[in-house]
Design a protein around this nucleic acid. Structure first.
Lengths: 225, 225
DNA sequence: GCCAATACTGACCGGAAGGTCAATAGCGTG
DNA sequence: CACGCTATTGACCTTCCGGTCAGTATTGGC
């Protein structure tokens, strides 16, 4: 609880104008993720960042501003892998989907699940924040995926249908799994294994999407034992 | 905003010990759903219920107690259809899944989406509440669905695999759609149509789950235009 | 080593909201 | 109609917390 610094020779006050914002945001991430916006205490953020409460207000005029900075930091820190996966434009869906879902499983095991919970929780109170998240993450990933789906439809790889909804069919279970694990983490003995879910669902959804019965030589599903 | 009662002949104070709790909970549902636990004001609950703030505390000792009552009420009010759908035990999956998803689409269009948001948001602050929701809703629906899947596997209707994860494949996209609509309701022009999603995803996931290529006479997908 | 500039501090403020309770007014009873 | 019971009230209390600011300590320049 008491942080282990302060050997008596180090000054207890230091001026590091440029390092502060980052430290404060880092501490704030933990606090906001743990408690949510309403229950987060700026005094605790200050304590964890090793500064006085007033210092927080030097760099972030209001609690909301700090929260926005936190949201922005979380966003840029956690969602590049997903975008990259979705951006592999040339791939056929039969390669892209397993890749994307596996990536989602990895990402979802980290603190991203808490981030998603935070976003869902506060989207009403911070509509502008929902906007940013939508534009920077959701629209990007969903857009790339949808585009890939449409191309696959054109080249006859998968069946016709609303590509945007098909995108939901693909990633929906991963989101559900992540949220389930987050919400019921301490509540239930059974938590879905995200990697297994990714692998199994990739097979199911690919099979469901494939055009007609084009490929009877389908490699039997690998690890469904 | 000002409620339209109080013609001057009606007394402004009335004693209705048994009607109060229900009225208060009803008002509280709206406030909690709109604002979340932290930002909900008991004074506003009281105002909307047409009582004084003190009266709220007569029936509910603390804000948390009121919140629990709200969660319980929402739970019992909104999830019977889903359970019923999942409980149709005899049905083959090819009938059960479209039914279940269609039901989920209907349910998700109502205020259930806000309820789900509330649950996700507050599950950390109210672990006991997460427990109740898990036991009363999630475990029930997921359990029934999983059981149905296992039976279908045994009778050879669908392929082998982890039935609990297959359940995620089935309902995940619906949950994702509901949450998407809730979070980005005012943020984006595109909101997925839940009924279309239900119908399209039912075809995809059924096709993906079906045992081998058992049914070449598959009725071509109905409304994928 | 001194000084000016300023990053940092933490005691303080104001208001908001959960929670209390003595007073009050509606209602059933005789 | 009078009376007592009690459901209801709303002014009040208390705590908590976001936000302020006059003062202080550090640092870099000379």
């Amino acid at each position: 609880m008491t942080h282990t610094d302060s050997p008596p020779d180090r000054p207890r006050r230091r001026r590091r104008k440029d390092a502060r914002p980052g430290e404060i945001v880092a501490a704030a991430i933990d606090v906001f993720v743990e408690r949510g916006f309403g229950a987060a205490r700026l005094e605790e953020v200050a304590r964890r960042a090793g500064v006085a409460k007033g210092t927080v207000f030097v760099y972030f005029p209001t609690k909301s501003d700090l929260f926005r900075a936190v949201a922005q930091a979380l966003l840029t820190a956690n969602f590049e892998p997903l975008e990259n996966a979705a951006a592999d434009a040339g791939l056929p869906l039969s390669d892209l989907i397993p890749l994307l879902l596996a990536q989602a499983a990895l990402v979802g095991e980290g603190k991203v699940s808490a981030v998603i919970r935070l976003l869902i929780a506060e989207s009403r109170a911070f509509p502008d924040l929902a906007q940013v998240w939508h534009d920077e993450v959701v629209a990007k990933v969903l857009g790339l995926l949808t585009a890939a789906i449409e191309r696959a439809q054109l080249r006859g790889e998968i069946r016709a249908g609303d590509a945007r909804l098909q995108a939901f069919s693909i990633i929906g279970p991963m989101l559900a799994g992540v949220i389930f694990r987050e919400v019921f983490r301490d509540t239930t003995a059974y938590l879905p294994d995200l990697r297994e879910l990714a692998s199994q669902h990739a097979h199911i959804v690919l099979r469901g999407l494939k055009a007609e019965f084009s490929d009877p030589t389908a490699k039997a599903s690998p690890q469904v034992e």
